[in-house]
Design a protein around this nucleic acid. Structure first.
Lengths: 349, 349
DNA sequence: ATGAAAGCGCTAACAA
DNA sequence: TTGTTAGCGCTTTCAT
């Protein structure tokens, strides 16, 4: 077992460079311009630091400055292309600003959300981005109590700024393309479009349902409550609900609006057992985009939220110190079936 | 603008409970059992703490104990179902241990990897999990210099324990199913199987290529170098290479082994422009699994790495303080086309 | 059974 | 132009 050599500290550098700790501190963190320290000393100190392999202890710095340099984001799941894109954008924006991103998934569990936010605050994060929380407003309360700057992305909240997709518009477009291209069904039970997935307590979901209802009523004259199945996000649950529905109808409905990728994943696990021609009499759409989802066995219309703009705009608000509950809505895009969207990382991977 | 009320500290609690800071500290972090503090004082202190809404400053604690309670993981990209699953498993394991996970993506850029690891170390992470690094061994050096416990997941490294998928086995199975089910092609140019994606400098890729070569040679008698196109992970690049290949061959090859989901995504963006019958004379496989990829327009054989077991095993090694470069290989699973694997989160989403 | 005091590594006044 | 000092909030001997 090799002897643990302790990490060099600022005073080691001071000793090596023949300067005082505070001078070293200033020389190393850039604040030396304000402090009239000779450029020569600075170079000497930097050399010494490099020489002995000094790197700052960011915990200590954070403690002293009461700014940690950490930015937090919470989201429901990593295994979801939409949230994964949010993470990717979030990281890029955080890095640009010299901040260290901390991303936590909370599985849509309100208790877990609260625990996680408290933990992040305990680490003195400078700001928090909230995506897809089950109980957004509870989180706001915690942040306000702790005086932590925070912002909602993806879902609007009160008491803090929000940058969200224009859920109504997106769902309206998706509903229209579904309703307008639905094949005519010989079986009248299957002639109606259905909405499946999500939770009515989720604001995004409820806006999307509104849009779906309006479009359906507008185009078809009426809609019945059973056409909206907000059975949550869990794939397993969606699979079961869909199976039950198709059982009742005698096949897939002519139109299916799947709300969220996780629900869609559940739908897939049901679809897998269907014969290939089962999809011929249906048109399917999914709110949220996944490149693989775009090339399934049957065509799928998808709505792509612009995670880059969502996150970038949110960062700009945070940078500006915005704290009042403005609401900015970003237009999502309707992506036709069999279209692979080329993201900003398509030359990296 | 409301007055900033500073977060209550341990001495605020001390004052409120009529005790000393050190007693409060002990009472609150559980170390009071060792310190013979009366149960009554403990309850009194806990009450006071709850009363004034005290929560520990984890930065300060970390500084003092030189253990932050943070565990880091680096990976190439979030927008990849395999790595997203790793994140999900990593979070769960970290939380179980009362640790706070910090996940960073480094876009397969060696410089970025190093910068990121240095940042994580500067935040005094207790340990680091390395997944899919472009230059794994450079990271080991940094960790060792800083005395940070670390482990490789997904790719083996030297100088530290590794828990990886059995890449050879996985690729062998995938190659076999491809070669054995390849349709006979009228056009001899298209009769051979191809490997596309990844980098030969990546150990996982090179093992998979070995397996592919061996299987092809074994079954078909020979293999030529041009059958292996290790053009990196970027979707755009894979798309271009594939387009060029199909141009040369006059269509898709009879067998295609796509190495990694990002490469597969690139392949898709080429496939999208092909007529539906273009896939009839080919069998396609992808190393790594994606639920949507499992139900594409054409059947896809996929290899699913067991991220849960990968991460769990790695955590056990870390828990045990293992520091020598053991290599543990976890068997991946071959997933037949049109099979949706039900993960542990299928009832959550 | 509890408290006093020192110090983790850093930065920000304030002196010099 | 640089050094000295105090202190961020916490834990940990060591006294009491």
């Amino acid at each position: 077992m090799p002897t643990r050599k302790p990490k060099p500290t600022i005073s080691d550098v001071a000793a090596a460079a023949g300067a005082s700790p505070s001078t070293v501190s200033a020389a190393l963190n850039g604040s030396w311009k304000r402090r009239r320290i000779s450029e020569e000393t600075v170079t000497r100190i930097q050399a010494a630091a490099a020489q002995i392999g000094y790197t700052a202890n960011l915990q200590a710095r954070g403690l002293r400055k009461s700014r940690s340099g950490l930015v937090g984001m919470i989201l429901p799941v990593h295994e979801n292309r939409f949230f994964a894109s949010m993470s990717q954008s979030f990281e890029a924006c955080a890095r640009e600003r010299g901040l260290c991103p901390v991303i936590a998934s909370t599985l849509r569990d309100p208790k877990e959300e609260i625990r996680t936010v408290e933990t992040l605050i305990a680490y003195a994060i400078d700001s928090l981005f909230i995506a897809g929380a089950a109980d957004p407003d509870a989180l706001s309360d915690i942040c306000k109590a702790a005086n932590v700057q925070h912002i909602y992305v993806d879902l609007p909240g009160k008491d803090a700024p929000s940058v969200v997709s224009h859920n109504y518009h997106g769902a309206e477009q998706l509903s229209r393309v579904i309703v307008d291209t639905m094949p005519t069904q010989s079986n009248p039970a299957r002639a109606k479009p259905y909405f499946v997935g999500g939770l009515t307590t989720n604001i995004a979901t409820s806006l999307r349902i509104d849009a779906f209802r309006t479009v359906v009523t507008d185009r078809l004259g009426q809609i019945s409550p059973e056409q909206v199945i907000a059975c949550g996000y869990a794939p397993g649950q969606t699979a079961r609900e869909l199976a039950a529905l198709c059982d009742r109808l005698g096949g897939l409905p002519a139109g299916l609006f799947v709300n969220s990728l996780t629900a869609f994943e559940g739908a897939l696990s049901y679809f897998v057992d269907l014969p290939p021609d089962a999809f011929e009499q249906s048109v399917i759409g999914c709110y949220d985009y996944d490149p693989f989802g775009a090339f399934l066995q049957f065509p799928v219309h998808m709505v792509r939220q612009n995670s880059d703009r969502l996150i970038q705009t949110a960062f700009e608000l945070i940078d500006a110190g915005t704290t009042d509950p403005v609401l900015i809505e970003i237009e999502p895009d309707l992506i036709p079936p069999r279209t692979i969207y080329k993201g900003r990382f398509s030359e990296i991977g």
